[in-house]
Write a protein that binds this DNA or RNA. Structure first.
Lengths: 245, 245
DNA sequence: ACCTGAACACCGTTCAAGT
DNA sequence: ACCTGAACACCGTTCAAGT
């Protein structure tokens, strides 16, 4: 992240805050993660952050340009942690699957950050490492650089989106004001009026499946499709005119 | 939406506001959409809404329980508008493709609402109609009710996620504080340090493709996969153990 | 050099009061 | 019946002042 960018990299003593915590981009990020995960309040605010760190709220602006940057640093740390200890096997399919499962697990473990991780770019070092790793797997599978880049984004966007959907569906704490129970799939299905929607009536007893995880299916679908494309080197599904131009 | 739920459905005169606008769930939703789309300020606030409607900010609480509900009503209206005039052809593939393209177009036309549409449920009538339509197409394709429900969610989650990614990548207005230029794919690629990431170095000149739309590819991939599953009625990719239990 | 604290310009939501 | 306006409890961010 661009946290301490304003501050020369030289080592120097930092005055401890009121509570003794030494302020740094890392300690602020850690406190932010704890705050986001805290049961009561969904929102990360710089004022709560100050209280948690035992410093004045405005002190964090010495390390981050704004609160959004703190959020991105927290997301980047989760990417970093989720990829720790990842190794490469002799099968690109297994590696891609492992890569995806790590991201999925991390998203489910931090559902409050799932949405933001699915739709934003952290611009941090962990994300760069993740892209490097993912593209490495696809290059080793036999894709050209252009194909690997395209498939990486297709793959990771899809994986993150399904993971975010799974995280939202499991609805961690219903008292969040932005995640009221009637606004998840699993609760929503009970609100459909009878007689107005013929197809919904036809599948009413199967609507429970709307709240089930979709991640394993989309992962299989994508990996299978990737493998098929490698089998026939002309490559891509018939309707795709945009590929490998 | 649950907008006017507190108010009996009987017709009655409403006093016009200071500016002559008649307040209703509909007029509030319209004003909210205009506010979200307005060039300067990303945020929908009840105070700006009051100013735009010419009424006291607190008046909207007569029609919606909170600001989040107004946001959901706006999202639901976009779903409604995007599906207007949809007809059914003799090909389920064509219909599913049309359905997806309508959602995609609507997401790109309202990029500020894309993220929320991809990850939330509006719980409104337009969303119910969309689900009814989509499941109808899959039932007609030959899927069982359970398969249709599962594939609907798989399909629509994926479509919405890629559409949101495309909307974010085209970066409508760079001065948004939450969408700074270095936090989209297209800008991010310029920030990678050289020499640190071997695979990124290997594809550096192809990294531009990271910002390209992924929607057409994932749409082809999904429809092709659906068609394959119908060809062999045992159905699903080999690793999927969760399907059709 | 780093942290503090006041100040500014905002928020969402509630509720008694007006008309 | 519907809208208003004050009040409450919050926000993010800046900047001069402290240590």
């Amino acid at each position: 992240m661009d946290g301490p960018a304003r501050i020369p990299a030289e080592r120097r003593r930092r005055r401890p805050t009121r509570s003794g915590t030494v302020l740094s981009a890392e300690s602020i990020t850690t406190a932010a993660l704890a705050l986001i995960e805290a049961p009561g309040g969904n929102a990360l605010t710089v004022r709560k952050l100050g209280a948690a760190l035992g410093c004045d709220p405005s002190s964090v602006y010495r390390y981050f340009p704004d609160t959004d940057a703190i959020l991105m640093a927290a997301a980047d740390r989760l990417i970093h942690d989720s990829l720790q200890g990842l190794t490469r096997s002799d099968s690109w399919e297994r590696d891609l699957r492992d890569f995806a499962h790590r991201l999925h697990r991390s998203m489910l473990a931090h559902p409050r950050l799932a949405m933001v991780r699915a739709s934003r770019v952290t611009a941090g070092p962990a994300e760069a490492h993740a892209i490097d790793t993912g593209i490495g797997i696809l290059l080793r599978a036999g894709y050209t650089p252009l194909q690997a880049v395209r498939r990486y984004r297709l793959f990771v966007d899809t994986i993150l989106a399904q993971a975010a959907a799974d995280a939202a569906a499991q609805n961690p704490d219903p008292q969040d004001r932005d995640e009221r129970p009637d606004r998840t799939w699993s609760e929503y299905q009970h609100g459909f009026p009878t007689g107005e929607y013929p197809h919904l009536d036809a599948v009413r007893s199967e609507l429970f499946a709307m709240g089930e995880p979709t991640f394993p299916e989309i992962l299989d679908l994508m990996i299978q499709s990737f493998a098929q494309q490698l089998d026939r080197p002309d490559g891509t599904p018939e309707h795709t005119a945009t590929d490998d131009a």
